[in-house]
Amino acid sequence: MNYSLSPLGDQAIVITVSDEINEQAQVNVRILSLLLEEQQPEWMVEYIPAFTTVTVFYRPDLLSRKGMIPYEQAKENVEELLTLIKTEEVSAVRTVEIPVCYGGDFGPDLEFVADHNGITPEEVIDIHQSGNYSVYMIGFAPGFPFIGGMSEKIAAPRRDSPRLEIPERTVGIAGKQTGVYPIETPGGWQLIGRTPKRLFTPEEEVPSLLRAGDKIIFKQISETEYDNWEEPRHDEDH
């Protein structure tokens, strides 16, 4: 795996695996995340994976022994750690289905997205359901997925002035991206529907429904189905 190391301030080191967003970069970020998860080096505080980088936060006081500054030692330790990578492949990806009740009060901007693209709201729903989606990264808000793979036929600009409160679990479109707001947040996305499924579950060991690499299927449900939705008690994927 090709990578470069650089500092982020005096307590973090950035592992960069690519200078553009692509499939291999994503796979490599996942490999690094799995490795760090598995190894849990004692000097590591935590790590944050992104599109092309994994940032490792460290404790300088545990890296001050060899007469080197902590960053130099962190660098050495990361290099050593990365020699443990045996493969450049990752195990099967998960597919997560997200039920969505489109339009109405849940999706006040569905009409706008349709008008903007010269199609009907029904067509927007069909196209949104038929994308080949995958999660690039989790960030911005707890459990918030950056999802790639949406058709440009339903792309829509952000609102000129952001809404102050977008209810949790709202599905939106911004530019060529689609996403789901896990918690109530201000935001400028065009809102097309809402899912009954929780993306952020603070009571769980893994508080995020989604993780980088997941494939996603959006599936339309009716208002009745939305109202009667029950969270499965045990998620088999965990």
Partner: peptide
């Protein structure tokens, strides 16, 4: 700490 990878601040 430890939950920023899930987007938790």
């Amino acid at each position: 700490t430890g939950y920023q990878k899930y987007g938790v601040i």
